[in-house]
Structures are given as C-alpha cells and as structure tokens.
Design a protein around this nucleic acid. Structure first.
Length: 415
DNA sequence: CCTCCACCGGAACGTGAGGAGT
DNA sequence: ACTCCTCACGTTCCGGTGGAGG
C-alpha cells in the first residue's frame, strides 16, 4: 500500500527545490555588493575613514524611508571598515548596532553597548539586564572603553522612536551619548543615527542636534528599475538557477514594491513569500501567479496581525461593524454601530464606553485601514459617519471567531 | 430660506498604572 | 518607602454643521 505522504516527500527529495539560500532574501542579509547606494556608502565611508588613523569621525544622521538601505549600508560600511583595519594591522574601531525601537531606554542602550565591547562587572560577570543605577552602568561602560583606547562607532537604528516614545528621555539618552566624548580621555565615540522620519529633527533638543547632525546622508527611495536590479542580484544568490525563469516575475515584484514607495525590504519579502508558496505546492518554478498570491498572503497576514493585537474595546467596535455588515446592511451609521456595540460589550461584560469614545475608536479603525468612514449628512435625519468594512467580511469574521471571548458573544448576538 | 436632526470633533478634566527621583 | 510626574484611556460638556423637509 502506498503511504500517503510518500509522494509529497519525494518531491522534496528529487529535484533541487526552490531555494539555494533563503536568507539572502531576509532583511538582515548583507550582500557583497550594494547596488545604487554607492553615493551613500562613499559619503559614510569618507566620514568614518579617519577612524583608521585613530581620529574620531563626525557623527552622522541618515534619513530615508523604510527599505531604502539605511541599515544595510551602515552595517556594510562598518564591516568593511573593520576588515580594512584588521587587514592593515591598525587598531580596529569597536562597533555596535542598537535598534532603538526594541532597546528603548537609557539603561538598555548602555547595556547593549557594554555587551558590544565586552564590558563586565568587577567580578567578570555580564552586566545585568536590570538592577544597577543608570550612572553605574554608564561608568562601567566608560571605564572599559577607556581601557581600550579606541574609537567606537555606535549605530542607533530607528533613533526617531527613541524621541517619539518620550521626547525628554530620548533627548537625554542622545545627549548623554554625544556628551560622553568630553568625559573620555583616550577613547572616542561617534554615532550614526538612522531615522525614517524626516520630521524627527524638529523634536530634537538643539544641543543634541548640533552634535548629532554634523553630517547628514539622505537615502532616496529606489525606483522600479533599481528595485529590479537589486532583485536580480539577490535572485542569483537565493534561488537555484532556472527557478525564476520568467523575467516577468522580477518585473512584477519590482512594480508592486515600487508602488509602496520603493521599499526594497518589501520587495524581497514578497519574493521570498512567493518562493515559499511555490515550494509548498511542490512547483518547480516561481511564477507571476505565485507573486500575486504572495502579495495577498502578506496583506492578509498584516491585517490578521493588526486585528489580533487590537485592544478588546476596539475589537468589540470592529465586531459590531462586522455584525451589521454580515446582516447584509450596506449603510452602517455611527448610531446603529454604537447600539450593537453596547450589546456586545454587555455580553462580554465589558465596560460600555460612551458614544463619544466609540466615535474615536471608529476613527482609529479607519486610520488603520480596517474600515472606511465618510462623514455624510442625511439632512433632517442628522449628520453622521457612514461606515464600511475595508477588508473582506470573511477574513474579519474568521479572525474574530478565533477570539474565544468574542465568538461566545457572537453566539449570543447573532443567535 | 430656515430649521433642526444626529452626530462630529475640540477642549478640559478625571483616573489609575508605571517610572523617575529622593 | 515615599512622593511626584507622565501618559494612556475615558468622560463630560458643548459648539458646530450639511442638507432634507417644511
């Protein structure tokens, strides 16, 4: 008798599969060559260059939207810089890469920097995650840095999030870092700040800005042609030859990503998802259909993610819109929505918010793109918002049914 | 042309949780 | 351990308004 999975597994065994090196399509991958970013690499390189002679480089701010290569370029340049130093047997600069969206407090930034240079407590153990006064970890870091007498280049990725989360605290962290040089004798720190928000400068303390923004490097979005070039380069590393036979595939991926302000990360993500799709189906080549399908998958995942992480009250509001839409009602107004919401909240034993608040939640859902709203006037019958689901009813229904609390309420209300 | 509905959306304020400072 | 601040989330209050119907 034939075993049921035999054929499926055979497919994986025979043939070479789709991917040669899937990681080449991940955002963390640093290729050997970065096309279309020669100018930026050159600028950053020439600014950091003095580090090879032991002179402290200026601080740099890099601007550009997501997926324009800011992070990868900075990683690449630092890597090359260190390589060159080792090769020429000069003191290699220390480097650290801090993602400020994840590492968002003064203490944790310092902790990351300590780890990067191998600074330890007096007994030789690692600096703890928490528990020390911030001043102490600061002096541990300084002490270690002084003992090495080196240049350290710190990349602060997504610095804007530091300042956005807390303007004062963010400025304090940056001020503390930029000012550290004046407290050091033999070592120097220089900072590369990376931001995808151009208005970020406005929120900075002028003192911080003047030191941090000594040099600025702008990363323009990639256009469709450049995206295509990048894709072609990665395709050769990531896929087995012939898997992407059709040039239309790359063109399509490039075109779709170019619509998203030339986001290379998105383009690579799309290509990888398309490849995974083809792989899972046992297809030998990646076709345009896979790409279109991948686009849908990515979008669907993004929606599922936002809905799942919604606060309970917002879910209840969204659910009320869904219930009304599911009844086949085309025009949903704030008033009805609020009534249904009230019932849902009651059956969930949730506090029933005021209509004013619900109105704000509706606006939030609108901004997230889960629903569409328009303010309309019904003349004598008042002025209100007309609400429509912006995503497929089926998907919202499925996600909300997944939530145990909500699905119970659903049975109460829909019956 | 005026009225008046049913809500919009700004403003000010209340509250409890979580940090920072001391 | 204590107070003080800040912030997110909500509430209360209220002036504002596009247009159907009189």
């Amino acid at each position: 008798m034939e075993k049921p999975l035999d054929k499926l597994f055979d497919k994986f065994l025979q043939g070479q599969g789709i991917f040669k090196d899937r990681d080449a399509l991940r955002p963390t991958y640093v290729p050997n060559d970065l096309p279309y970013r020669g100018e930026q690499m050159g600028r950053i390189g020439s600014i950091l260059g003095p580090a090879l002679r032991g002179a402290p480089p200026s601080n740099i701010l890099c601007y550009g939207k997501t997926g324009t290569g800011k992070t990868v370029v900075s990683r690449y340049v630092l890597e090359q810089l260190v390589n060159k130093a080792v090769e020429s047997k000069v003191n290699a600069p220390l480097t650290a890469h801090v993602n400020c969206r994840i590492v968002g407090t003064n203490y944790r930034v310092l902790k990351t920097l300590c780890d990067a240079i191998g600074a330890t407590m007096q007994d030789g153990s690692d600096v703890p995650f928490t528990g020390l006064p911030t001043d102490e970890i600061r002096s541990i870091f300084k002490k270690q840095l002084e003992s090495d007498s080196k240049i350290m280049v710190v990349v602060l990725d997504e610095v804007d999030s530091l300042v956005k989360r807390d303007v004062n605290q963010g400025n304090d962290i940056l001020y503390g870092l930029t000012r550290m040089n004046s407290e050091l004798d033999r070592s120097r720190i220089s900072i590369i700040g990376i931001s995808n928000d151009l208005t970020f400068k406005d929120m900075l303390d002028p003192r911080v800005l003047s030191t941090l923004g000594e040099e600025e490097v702008i990363f323009a979005p990639y256009n469709a042609v450049e995206l295509k070039g990048i894709l072609q380069q990665r395709v050769e590393i990531a896929f087995h030859p012939g898997v992407i036979g059709d040039e239309g595939v790359i063109n399509l991926v490039g075109a779709l990503a170019a619509q998203e302000h030339g986001d290379a990360r998105r383009a690579l993500d799309l290509l990888r998802t398309a490849g995974e799709l083809a792989e899972r189906r046992g297809d030998e080549r990646v076709l345009q259909d896979h790409v279109r399908e991948a686009q849908k998958v990515i979008e669907r995942d993004a929606i599922t993610d936002t809905v799942k992480t919604l606060p309970m009250q917002s879910k209840a509001v969204l659910f009320s819109v869904y219930v009304l839409a599911d009844k086949g009602q085309n025009d949903i107004y704030t008033g009805e929505c609020f009534n249904v919401y009230s019932e849902i909240a009651k059956s969930l034993s949730l506090d029933t918010l005021t209509q004013r608040r619900v109105s704000d939640l509706i606006s939030e859902l609108d901004m997230m793109g889960l629903i569409n709203t328009t303010v309309i006037s019904k003349g004598r019958y008042g002025r209100t918002k007309k609400i429509k689901l912006a995503v497929s009813k089926k998907q919202i229904g499925a996600i909300l049914a997944d939530d145990t609390r909500l699905s119970k309420a659903a049975r109460d209300i829909i019956g």
